[in-house]
Simulated scan of single mutants.
Amino acid sequence: MHIKSLFAAAALGLSACALPSMAMADEVFDAPVATRQANETGLQTAIFAGGCFWGIEGIFSHTRGVTSAVSGYHGGTANTATYRQVVSGTTGHAESVRVTYDPSVIRYDQLLQILFSVGADPTLHNRQGPDRGPQYRAAIVPTTDEQRAVARAYVAQMERSGVWDRPMAVSIERYRTFYEAEDYHQDYMLKNPRAAYIVRWDAPKVEALEEMFPQFYRARFRTG
């Protein structure tokens, strides 16, 4: 299914969170609903990677049922978990967002649907929007066995759906340590709504969230 959006489909080799290119795609693809749901109660934690963490944090900070969205680094070690080192693409980290959510309001599979409908293209390898490198890979990091099972089923369903012309490139990674990013990265969209990158690449994702998922969209930006 196609929906109109400003979501970019081609990376042009710009650096992380750099000024955007004028190139854009006309459409973004909507992911199917997952075939199974996680059996979860109480607040849960999920980790997602999908390009520059500003936009992914912004999306989930506008998602009803999410109580916290924190930008950070996952996949590498503590001594290289800094922005200056991660943007080199050599540390093993991915720019990621740790999401705390209430499964009685929004389920894990619904978070995945939002991520791959408005946040990240699951067919792009080591790139999203204008950003290129392994630090911008699309990745799901389950924090429980049940989440892992749901994630596997969801990616398999996306592969079978026929919605995308390319094979899935999103990885399901083993949980390691999540390192919170520097303070100036937290709530970046809230603090910098007129920044060129935000206006061009990330604000349209939040607009698409409101259009596509009105039942989960909330206007007030919840910091976390």
Rank of each mutant, 00 (worst) to 15 (best):
T91N: 08
R64N: 08
T90I: 06
F178Q: 07
S5Q: 04
A11P: 04
G72M: 01
A78C: 11
F116Y: 12
M168F: 09
I59E: 04
R176V: 12
A49Y: 02
G75Q: 00
P214F: 07
T41Y: 11
V97A: 12
P134S: 13
S71Y: 02
H62N: 11
I140P: 00
A34C: 12
I59T: 01
I56H: 06
Q110W: 06
A153W: 01
Y154C: 15
S21R: 06
F53G: 06
E146H: 13
T143H: 06
R194Y: 10
V66G: 04
A23Y: 11
S61V: 00
R132F: 07
E211C: 12
V86E: 06
A149G: 12
T144Q: 09
D102R: 03
A46W: 02
G51S: 03
E182S: 13
K4C: 12
N192Q: 08
C52V: 09
T77S: 14
A181M: 04
A208R: 02
V141P: 01
R166S: 14
V28G: 05
K191T: 13
G119H: 03
Q113Y: 03
C17L: 06
M158E: 02
H2F: 15
R194F: 09
P32N: 13
T77G: 13
T80C: 06
V66P: 01
K4F: 08
E210Y: 03
M212P: 00
A18D: 04
G51C: 01
R148Q: 14
S15H: 13
P142Q: 08
A38W: 01
S21L: 11
K205H: 10
A16Q: 08
V99A: 01
V33K: 09
A149N: 07
A196V: 05
L190T: 02
Q157V: 08
T63H: 02
A169Q: 12
I3F: 15
L6D: 11
L209N: 06
Y101M: 10
Q44A: 14
Y184S: 12
Y179Q: 15
G162L: 05
F7L: 12
I56E: 09
S96E: 04
R152G: 14
V206S: 04
G13C: 08
E57A: 15
F53V: 12
Y188V: 07
E146K: 14
V28N: 01
M158T: 08
S171C: 10
A169I: 03
S68Y: 07
R107P: 03
A195H: 08
D165Y: 10
M22R: 15
P214G: 10
K191C: 08
S5R: 03
Q113H: 07
G50I: 00
R174H: 10
V163L: 14
G42F: 00
H93D: 09
V28F: 03
R176F: 05
A11Q: 00
P20T: 07
R222D: 10
P142M: 08
R174N: 13
L14Q: 05
Q113D: 06
S104H: 04
E146A: 15
G92P: 00
A208Q: 04
I198D: 02
R200G: 05
T35W: 05
D145S: 14
V150Q: 05
Q110N: 14
Q113F: 02
L190F: 13
R174K: 14
T223L: 09
Q85I: 07
P142A: 14
Y83W: 10
L14D: 00
A46R: 03
R174T: 15
P204G: 13
L43A: 15
A18P: 01
G58F: 01
V70F: 06
I59K: 00
Q113V: 02
